[in-house]
């Protein structure tokens, strides 16, 4: 099971939950599982959210693998000037 943490601002869309465990193999599966669990979060996942897996940040990387015991953080995407 991967340990999933959500940035505190996302708690608004998860009924307050910011830490869960999920059995997912990649980012797409993670988004699907989260979207099913938190419908209000679903529309934001692919456009507004970046994912850090064991400290490495991934943006727009749906096929990135998530290993069994990974530590995963979800937070707002970043760009710049």
């Amino acid at each position: 099971m991967a340990r999933i943490s959500l940035s505190s601002g996302l708690a608004l869309y998860t009924g307050g939950e910011t830490a869960i465990e999920l059995e997912v193999g990649n980012v797409r599966q993670l988004f699907a599982a989260l979207g099913e669990r938190y419908p209000e979060l679903a529309s934001r996942l692919e456009t507004e959210i970046a994912v850090a897996i064991d400290g490495e940040i991934y943006q727009d990387a749906l096929l990135q693998k998530i290993a069994g015991a990974s530590e995963v953080f979800l937070f707002p995407k970043i760009a710049g000037g």
């Binding site: 943490s5 940035s7 970046a50 850090a52 400290g55 490495e56 940040i57 953080f73 979800l74 937070f75």
Partner: peptide, 12 residues
């Protein structure tokens, strides 16, 4: 390296 940020990931 390893510091937990308040917005999400640990720093690399």
């Amino acid at each position: 390296e390893g510091t937990q940020t308040y917005y999400g990931p640990k720093l690399g």
